[in-house]
Design a protein around this nucleic acid. Structure first.
Lengths: 140, 140
DNA sequence: TATTGTTATACTCTATAACTATA
DNA sequence: TATAGTTATAGAGTATAACAATA
């Protein structure tokens, strides 16, 4: 058998706890802006530009049919718009409206600010190691 | 103004991406076990022992009324049980049944295994730094 | 035929407000 | 009065299956 040290599960456990803590933080920052965490995520993903339904559903890890109703609700609130795709008449592109763009940036900034507060007193060296380690984890 | 280096938002961004990756992983491991991620979380929280509704709702960051229906569904499936609390007749304790305990451990192990795979080739030094850094973040 | 997106349907998750029973 | 938990209600998130339109 492969030797398993206490550290292995410590790390897994710390990562799981961090995930839950960040999920809570995400919910707490979305709510005062009138958004569910899922809506906030959707808006933030669109900051870098419009996306088709299929691509968006892949990024958010939800079925296209689930996405349809989410986009319906956000469109009713004029936060996103379905725009025709001239290159493919089946497809559409979801893009942020001006109000949606504003809200997306508020969300994004609020989360980043809170995380920066939480990580403020990490030494620069730990910070560097952390970024590298997380990026390495994300590729697997 | 306080100087903000590129690294600050890199770290925040890496943490947010890690959160989403772990959320997906959590969903992927719960599903084949017939559980939603929220149900899996609830069961895993009970591994260390029974809890009252109020305490459980605090840990899961959901309203007590939302918890009531979650527990209803899990109780119908014989995964948890409401047990009377002799010390306070208003209160009850939610505990895992034998089947619930089994499933909770399967969930927990599956997630830990996947995370250990993802972190397997981190050098021991990075691993140590990562644990310390995450624990420090979690206290803020 | 395959792909894009939607509709219909059924559950689950979640919050708010009002409530019962007990402390 | 305060606390533990529930009920009623409404809205949001999600998946599956079946579908229309276009590629």
């Amino acid at each position: 058998m492969v030797t398993t040290t206490a550290r292995d599960s410590d790390l897994a456990s710390a990562l799981v706890q961090t995930m839950h803590r960040l999920q809570d933080l995400h919910a707490e920052t979305s709510r005062p802006l009138g958004l569910t965490p899922q809506q906030a995520h959707l808006l933030c993903v669109l900051i870098t530009g419009p996306l088709g339904m299929t691509e968006l559903s892949r990024i958010l890890s939800i079925e296209r049919s689930s996405l349809t109703s989410m986009v319906d609700r956000l469109e009713r609130r004029d936060l996103v718009a379905r725009v025709a795709n001239p290159a493919d008449r089946r497809a559409c592109r979801i893009e942020l409206t001006a109000a949606g763009k504003d809200l997306a940036h508020q969300c994004h900034d609020a989360v980043v600010d809170r995380i920066q507060e939480m990580t403020a007193d990490l030494p620069a060296s730990a910070r560097g190691t952390l970024i590298t380690a997380l990026q390495s984890i994300l590729t697997r």
